[in-house]
């Protein structure tokens, strides 16, 4: 299992990747949609964790770009922003829509569920 984490909060995304690594989950991280596009050119990912609100290109737009290159890839949205409308739309588009701050055990459960769906 290999994940790509995309969030413009560098200290958040880098530490989250480190914590996932301590749990034997390989996770690369970047802080912009542009860098995410570069990463998926060279690496295969099973799941992407995308911050919804990022400068210039947000998570929802990035998901469409990634899906063109990696059809069927699973997505989890992450946000600090939380209107009901955002939640409904985000939940319909991605496997899960999580609010910051997150509990890492919940996140891992959601990752496993999302990838389990892929196998089923």
């Amino acid at each position: 299992m290999r994940l790509l984490l995309v969030d413009d909060e560098e200290e958040f995304v880098a530490t989250l990747a480190e914590r996932l690594s301590l749990r034997s989950i390989e996770a690369d991280w970047v802080t912009s949609a542009k860098d995410a596009e570069k990463m998926i050119e060279t690496t295969h990912y099973d799941l992407v964790l995308l911050d919804v609100k990022m400068p210039k290109v947000g998570g929802r737009e990035l998901k469409k770009i990634i899906e063109k290159k990696l059809p069927g890839i699973k997505t989890i949205y992450l946000t600090g922003h939380g209107s009901e409308e955002d939640y409904q739309t985000g939940s319909a588009e991605a496997e899960y829509y999580l609010m910051k701050p997150i509990n890492i055990n919940d996140l891992i459960e959601k990752i496993n569920n999302a990838l389990g769906k892929q196998g089923g």
Binding site: E9, E11, F12, T15, R19, G80, G82, K100
Partner: peptide, 22 residues
Amino acid sequence: ISHEIKNSLAVINESAGYLEDV
């Protein structure tokens, strides 16, 4: 503002979580 505070809390949460892990 609430979004910004949540982002900040998320960084603190992961940092504290990492300390707990190690």
